[in-house]
Design a protein around this nucleic acid. Sequence first.
DNA 1: CCACAAAATGTTATCGTTAACGATGATGGG
DNA 2: CCCATCATCGTTAACGATAACATTTTGTGG
Lengths: 365, 365
Amino acid sequence: MKLNTLAKRDRSGRGGANLRQIATELGVSMMTVSRGLRGSPEVSAVTRERILAAAERLKYRPNRVVSAFKTGRTGLVGVMVRPSKLYRCDLIEGIHDTLVAAGSLPVMHFSRTGGEAAPDAAELGCLHRLLDQRVDGIVFWPSDETVPNHYLEEVWKRGVPLVAVDRPLPHTRADFSGTDDVAGGRIAAEHLLSLGHRRLAILCGEPWVSTYADRRQGFVEAVTAHNATAACEKAGDDAVVCEQIECRNEAAIDESRELLSGRERPTAVFAVSDVLAAHVYEAAAALTLSVGVDVSVLGYADIPEAGLLRPSLSTVRQDFQEIGRNAARLLLDRIEGRNTADRARSIRITPTLVARQSTSAPNHH
Amino acid sequence: MKLNTLAKRDRSGRGGANLRQIATELGVSMMTVSRGLRGSPEVSAVTRERILAAAERLKYRPNRVVSAFKTGRTGLVGVMVRPSKLYRCDLIEGIHDTLVAAGSLPVMHFSRTGGEAAPDAAELGCLHRLLDQRVDGIVFWPSDETVPNHYLEEVWKRGVPLVAVDRPLPHTRADFSGTDDVAGGRIAAEHLLSLGHRRLAILCGEPWVSTYADRRQGFVEAVTAHNATAACEKAGDDAVVCEQIECRNEAAIDESRELLSGRERPTAVFAVSDVLAAHVYEAAAALTLSVGVDVSVLGYADIPEAGLLRPSLSTVRQDFQEIGRNAARLLLDRIEGRNTADRARSIRITPTLVARQSTSAPNHH
DNA sequence: CCACAAAATGTTATCGTTAACGATGATGGG
DNA sequence: CCCATCATCGTTAACGATAACATTTTGTGG
C-alpha cells in the first residue's frame, strides 16, 4: 500500500502541461487546442499560432497513451524474434527506420522456448503481452522450430495485422517479407559456373528449413539448366556434376572433410549459410587445402563475420535492412488501411553476389 | 476523412471481451472484475475463480493502454541506442529479459545524427517520441559523440528515470551500468606480464573516449606497479617498457605497422578494442609476423568475431548481457520507487580474460 | 442591412479501467 | 439481541484527449 503510493507517478506535474492548461492559458476550449495542435484546417491561422506558441512555452507534449485510448492506434508495433536470430540487427534497424518515418516505434520481444515441457508457451506469452499493449501490428520472425499457427489465429481474430519476415509462415494469411532464395541459389550456381567450376558440391543444411530448401532448389536448377545448354553446345562429357550433402551445422565439418578428401573432390563448394561455409574453412584447413585456391567456397547471407574471415568469404548477400523496411511497409499498409485484401501479400528481394577471396577459377590439379 | 475512417480500428469487437462484458456475464460490478483479475485480496476466492474462468472463456485480455492511462504506468521502457552500437545485441537482450520478468517491455529507438547541421536534433526527437509514449523510464547508450545534456534535463524534469549504459554521462544524475574498464586494463596487463612479456605496447584508441581512457589507465597502472615490485625484487634492468600509441581506428593499421617494424618491437600489443586488434592482425600479416607466435595481440570486449579470427583473438570480455540486466534493474528500482536517492547509482562489472590463440609467451628472437 | 452560407469555436459524451469512498451482509462478542 | 467489525462488493468520478454534434462568429451577395 505504502510502497504502491510511493511508486505511483505524478501524472499531473511531470514538467509538461496538458491540453487543459494550454486551453486555460489561452482562454479557449480544449477542443480548439486539440485541433490546433494536430493542424486541423478548422482552426484559424492566428489561433493556431497562439496555440503552438503556448504549447512550446509550456513544454506541452502530446500524450500518446490517451490518444491511443481514443483513436485505437498506439503507434507501437510489436517485433517478435527468437534471440538466436538477434545477430541480424540490421533487420530490426530496417523495421525501425520505416516505422519511425510513419510515426510509430517498435516494441521488442524476444521469445524463448518455454523449457522442454512447453516449447511454445513462451511464444504465446509474448504475443499476449504485445496484444495487451495494444500494438497496432506485429512483425514476427519465425525460427527453425515449427510454429503452432493457432497462436497466430488469436492475433488474426483480434484484427491485429501480422507480417512474417525471413521465412514465410505456412497456412497463414500473414504477409511476408524475405529473400527470393531460389534466385539466390541460382545466383550462387551461376557465379561458380562462370568461374569455370565443373565439379560442384552443395551443403544443404537442414532439409526442413524452407529457406535452405529454396536455395538448394535454385542452385540445382541452375546447374541442370547449364548442363542442358552445355550439352547442346559441346555435346558432351563436359557436364557439371553437383554433389548434394544434407547436414546440420554440427556435422558440417566432418561432412565437408569427407567431401574434400576424395580424389574427385569438388573444386567449389556452395554452403547454404555463411556459418556452414566457415565450417568448410575448418575442414579445408585440416586437409591443408587453401580456400580460394585449391577449393572455392561460397556462403550465403553475408553475415558481418564474412568479410573478416581469411580468406574473406564470397557470399550471396541478403539485404536484411531492406527486408526489414519491406516488412514494416507491408504492416503499415495494413494498419493504415491501404491494404485490406484477404490474400497475403509477399515481397521477396533478390540477393546479390559479393565476390571476395574465397572463390576463384578452379585450379586444375 | 474517408481514409481515416477506413484506418480506424474497431476497438469494441477485436475478438476479446472487456471488463464490462465479463461483469454483465457474471452479474457483478466492473470493479469486482477488475479486482478479481488483478488478484486483489478484497474479492472472495469463489468470485475470483468465476471471474478468472469467465475471462478465460471470453478471451479477455487486459488493456494496458487504459491501465496506463489510469495508473500512470505504461509498462514500457525506452531504449535509445545509436545504430552504430547495434552490433551489441546481447546488451539489449539483457535489458529485455529483466524488463520482461518485471512485466515491462522495451521500446527501441535508434538515434541517428540529424545531418551535419543539427548533429543532436535526432537525439532530442527520439527522446520526445519516447516521452510522448509515456515510457516509464529510458535506457540510454551514449556514443562517441558528445551528448548535449540539456536534452536529458528535460527527461529529468518530467520525472522519467534514465540509466546510461556502457559509458557514463558526465554531469548527470543518471544511474549507470557498465564495465570497470580500469580493472579491465589491469587484467589485460597482468595477462601479458604473466606470460613473460617485457616489451609491451598499447593502442589507446581515441583519447576522448572515456572507456578507452580507463582501459589505458588500468593497463599503464598495472605495468607501473609491476615495475615497482620487480625493481625491488631484481634490482634492475628487467623493467617493463610500454609504448603508448594514440590512434583512431582508421590510422590503426599504419600505426601498428610502424610499431611492429622497429628492431626493438614490442612482443605483445594490447588494443583497447577488438576492432583495433583486428587491425594489428592486418599489420602483422603485412610484415609476415605471425600473431600469437612472433607477436601477441590482446583485444577488448570479445565481439562475436573475436573467436572467428585466425588465430582466434585473446581478449578481455565484457558481459554485455549482464550490463543490460543491471541497467534494467537500476531503472526498475527507480520506476518502482525502491530507489529514490538523489545521487546516481552506478554498477560496474569486472570483465574477464578470455585467453585464446593470439597471446602466448614471448618468442625471444 | 439582412439573409445565409462558411468558417471558427464550444459542448457533451465517451473510450476501459481504476482510486476512493460508500454500502451491504455476515460474524461475533458482550 | 444489538452494535462494532470485517469481508465483500458496488457507485461515482476521473484520467486526457477526441468524435460528433451544437453553437457562435465572420464574410458575402442581394
